[in-house]
């Protein structure tokens, strides 16, 4: 049993001239459910990508599930880390069905030269049922709406049977009812499967309900972290998003009404 699921030390990441992370350190214990919030360009997505090795570190060290993220360990890590990226446009003519997309989640586990068997398809169908997308299983993936694709992406991650769950704005493309449903679903799965979850969101209302801990990011740094209720004060948010406290108050009030 590894007690620290993710350990990031002094991570610096830059894209061309821009520095996306400026020396970020972070520890996530196994079983934790951690939310990350912050304005656009704060480096939230970059943090997720250095954990599964899609992003390249300039300096610093990342350990995931007890292994250093290096090219030698990368496939070991990626098979155990489920990653739900932000919704992207998918060509509606793409010749691949929802069921096949979810099966891609199992491809890493299967390894080279092995084809998906009956058991793999059974797991895929169960996951589609779990996220409520079983009725669309045979549709082309590009025909689904953003929210439906988001659920399919979550099903794909679950089909991978990961130990670590990384979600990049899983509720961004959803209506408010679906947002709550998806977050509840993610939390349920997290508890039932004893996962470690790190997720990025803009949905402030959801954080206290789901998260054990919240990380606030700004300008490529971790600005603050702690328990959601304490941390998400109007004063903190006003500094995080560079908005007067009164505006933050007003917006949060509106959010509750929505």
């Amino acid at each position: 049993m590894v007690n620290t699921a993710i350990s990031v030390k002094d991570a610096v990441v830059s894209y061309r001239e821009d520095v996306a992370l400026r020396g970020v350190s972070l520890e996530v214990a196994s079983g934790e459910f951690v939310g990350i919030i912050g304005p656009n360009g704060a480096g939230k997505t970059t943090i997720l990508t250095i954990i599964n090795g899609l992003g390249k570190l300039h300096s610093g060290q990342v350990r995931v599930l007890g292994k250093n993220v290096t090219s030698r360990n990368i496939n070991f890590i990626r098979r155990r880390v489920g990653y739900v990226p932000q919704v992207e446009h998918i060509d509606p003519r793409m010749p691949i069905s929802v069921r096949e997309v979810v099966m891609i989640g199992r491809y890493g586990l299967l390894g080279l030269f092995r084809r998906p068997g009956k058991n793999d398809w059974k797991i895929v169908d169960e996951m589609l049922e779990l996220v409520g997308m079983d009725h669309l299983a045979r549709r082309p993936i590009g025909h689904l709406s953003g929210g439906e694709q988001q659920r399919v992406a979550i099903a794909r991650c679950l089909a991978q049977e990961p130990e670590l769950f990384l979600l990049d704005e899983p509720t961004a493309a959803l209506d408010w009812k679906a947002q709550t449903e998806i977050l509840e679903l993610v939390r349920q799965i997290h508890d039932a499967r004893k996962l470690t979850t790190l997720f990025i969101t803009h949905d402030l209302g959801a954080l206290p309900v789901t998260c054990d801990r919240v990380i606030l990011m700004k300008d490529g740094l971790i600005w603050s972290e702690g328990f959601p209720v304490k941390l998400l004060s109007d004063a903190n948010l006003s500094q995080l998003y560079d908005m007067p406290v009164s505006v933050v108050k007003k917006r949060r009030g509106e959010n509750i009404l929505v």
Binding site: N52, L54, I74, N75, F76, I77, R78, R79, V81, Y83, P85, M94, I96, E100, V101, I104, G105, Y107, G108, L109, L110, L112, F113, R115, P116, R156, Q160
Partner: peptide, 23 residues
Amino acid sequence: LIFYKEIQATLFHREMALSVGLP
């Protein structure tokens, strides 16, 4: 034929294929 599943995943979405541990 041999690498159909790896090719299928890569053609569909290269980053997704990478993130599940495919080469």
